[in-house]
C-alpha cells in the first residue's frame, strides 16, 4: 500500500487581539501623562519691603555694592555699575514671523510694517493686519556698530555654531569671519571653560565637529545684542566676584518692552552667574 503523504498542518496566525486591547488601554493612559510642551520657571527677586508696605522707602544704598544694572531701551542696551557704565550696545530690532500657509519664516524690520502694511509671506499670503504682532516667532536684536547716536550704524556679523552659539577667539573677541573658524582652529563660546578645537567629522571632549555631510555647518549672521550683553556680564561677574552683591542684577526696561526681551536678558544674566534678578522701570517709564 502506497504510503500516504501527510499534509503539513496550516500554520496558525498569532492572535493579536489581546495585544491590541492592551495597546488601546496603554495609549490613552500615556496620552494623559505626556508633556507636549515642557514648561520651566524663571524666578525673580522681589524686594522684601513689598510684603510689608507697598509705599515704604527702599533701604539705603550700600556704598560697597556693585549695583549692577542692565538698562534696555528701544534702541540700545546699557550696563551700569558703581562708578560708571559700559558703552551702549546699539541694536536693530527685527521680527521673524512663521507663516501658517507655507510654514516658512519671514523677517521684517518692525518700522516697515503696520496695520496698513502687514507682513507678507513668501507665497503671497498677507498676515492678519490686527493680530500679526501675536504671531511673532522670534524677536532679534541685531548689534549695530555706531560712531555716534545719530549714526544709522552698520550691522555687526559673527560666526555661529550649529547649536547657535557665537564663537570667540583667543582674545575673547567675537569671530567675524568664517575663515577664522575652520577645522583646526581653537575657539570658545559664551559659557565657562568652553574652549574647544574645531574639527570636521570627529567629535570628542574638547573637539567640536563643525561639518555636516562633509561641508562646514557654521553660519555667519548678524550678531545678537544678547550675546554682546552676555560677554560683558561674564567679564563683570568674574572681575567683581568678591563684591557683596556679586550675584545681584537689576534689569530696567521701557514700558513697551516685550516680555520676551526681558526673559532673554534674565537668561543671559543667570548664565553669567547673576542669580538674584530684580526688575525695575526706567525713570519716566
Amino acid at each position: 500500500m502506497a504510503k500516504q503523504l501527510k499534509k503539513a498542518p496550516k500554520q496558525k496566525e498569532m492572535d493579536m487581539l489581546p495585544v491590541m486591547s492592551l495597546m488601546t488601554v496603554l495609549i490613552p493612559v500615556l496620552l494623559t501623562m505626556t508633556a507636549f510642551q515642557k514648561l520651566a520657571i524663571v524666578e525673580i527677586n522681589l524686594p522684601e519691603r513689598s510684603e510689608i508696605a507697598f509705599e515704604s522707602e527702599p533701604p539705603p544704598p550700600d556704598d560697597n555694592a556693585l549695583n549692577l544694572t542692565v538698562a534696555l531701551s528701544s534702541g540700545y542696551v546699557e550696563i551700569w555699575a558703581r562708578g560708571g557704565s559700559l558703552p551702549k550696545v546699539f541694536f536693530k530690532e527685527m521680527w521673524t514671523f512663521r507663516c501658517k500657509s507655507d510654514n516658512d519664516t519671514i523677517t521684517y524690520d518692525p518700522s516697515t510694517i503696520g496695520a496698513s502694511n502687514p507682513p507678507k509671506c513668501q507665497d503671497g499670503t498677507v498676515l492678519d493686519a490686527e493680530k500679526f504682532k501675536y504671531s511673532i516667532e522670534t524677536i532679534h536684536l541685531w548689534t549695530l556698530h555706531k560712531e555716534s547716536e545719530e549714526d544709522p550704524g552698520k550691522i555687526e556679523m559673527s560666526v555661529y555654531s550649529r547649536s547657535d552659539s557665537a564663537y570667540l577667539d583667543g582674545n575673547n573677541e567675537f569671530i567675524t569671519e568664517k575663515s577664522a573658524a575652520q577645522p583646526g582652529s581653537t575657539v570658545a563660546t559664551l559659557s565657562e571653560s568652553s574652549s574647544r578645537r574645531l574639527a570636521c567629522g570627529q567629535s570628542a571632549v574638547g573637539v567640536e565637529d563643525i561639518c555636516s555631510d562633509g561641508k562646514l555647518a557654521i553660519t555667519l549672521r548678524p550678531r545678537s545684542a544678547y550675546d554682546e550683553l552676555a560677554k560683558s556680564l561674564i567679564m563683570i561677574h568674574n572681575r567683581f566676584i568678591d563684591s557683596p552683591d556679586a550675584d545681584n542684577i537689576i534689569v530696567l526696561a521701557d514700558d513697551d518692552t516685550a516680555f520676551d526681551k526681558i526673559i532673554n536678558i534674565m537668561d543671559r544674566a543667570r548664565d553669567a552667574g547673576f542669580f538674584k534678578i530684580n526688575l525695575s522701570k526706567l525713570a519716566g517709564g
Binding site: L46, S50, K133, D255, T257, A258, F259, I262, I263, K281
Partner: peptide, 20 residues
Amino acid sequence: QLDKNTAYDIMFKVMATCGA
C-alpha cells in the same frame, strides 16, 4: 504666565501687585 509680546509695563504692575 504672560504672552511673550506682553508689554513690560503690564508685567511690572502685575508683579508689583503680587508682591504687595
